[in-house]
Design a protein around this nucleic acid. Sequence first.
DNA 1: TCACGTATTTCTACAGTGTAGAAATACGGA
DNA 2: TCCGTATTTCTACACTGTAGAAATACGTGA
Lengths: 111, 111
Amino acid sequence: MTRSSYLGAFEEIVLLALVQVGEGAYGMTVRREIEERSGRSVSIGAVYSTLDRLERKGYVSSRLADPDAVRRGRARRYFQIEQAGEEALHRSREVVSSMWEGLETRPDVGR
Amino acid sequence: MTRSSYLGAFEEIVLLALVQVGEGAYGMTVRREIEERSGRSVSIGAVYSTLDRLERKGYVSSRLADPDAVRRGRARRYFQIEQAGEEALHRSREVVSSMWEGLETRPDVGR
DNA sequence: TCACGTATTTCTACAGTGTAGAAATACGGA
DNA sequence: TCCGTATTTCTACACTGTAGAAATACGTGA
């Protein structure tokens, strides 16, 4: 795709879940958010690789949890959306809604 | 992706363009519709391969133009959306809007 | 009738996305 | 020290996104 600035369908979903979870979002909570809102079940691997790709493009950033956190298991990696990610979300939305324009009321399509 | 019933981002755009053009849509008009509405330029090859894939999934169907059509060039192939395509569009819309829920008014994201 | 221009589809190729599942990591507690 | 638990990381592969070149086919003017 030659590094276009368009989001893939699942990338958009992951980005939105990240925003919905907000402060302190990490892999597991992002997955839960997607499953709860969309009713669609996704593997944790799918979430992480998408998050990684989004990070490579500068749409999200991540940091490891403070090491003093008292809990078991591997350290969490917290994610947050970056400005570029917000812009990409904005563009996706604009494009899709301009494509929908005028069709919303058609009972045969989309609703 | 193991044949999930989810549409890719570009598949959704092509499907919507098809509906917008309506009766007598074919490759070139679908492309024009996408370019006009989204402001995004796409190659004709991209449109056709997406249309082909959608057809294989049963989301659209096509038929060759009547041979008596008086015009030059290769015969047109007209496309139309199928019920399954309308349903897929519907599902995409539902999922994305449930992911957006509550964020529409946030000035930092998406608008 | 034949070379041409034009309209359109088809083919090919490859980078990027979607996705699952298994493996690795790391820590607190018995 | 071993174990269970929480979480990330790795790996692999099918599918999607995309461009561009090639093929096809017909009407027309010479």
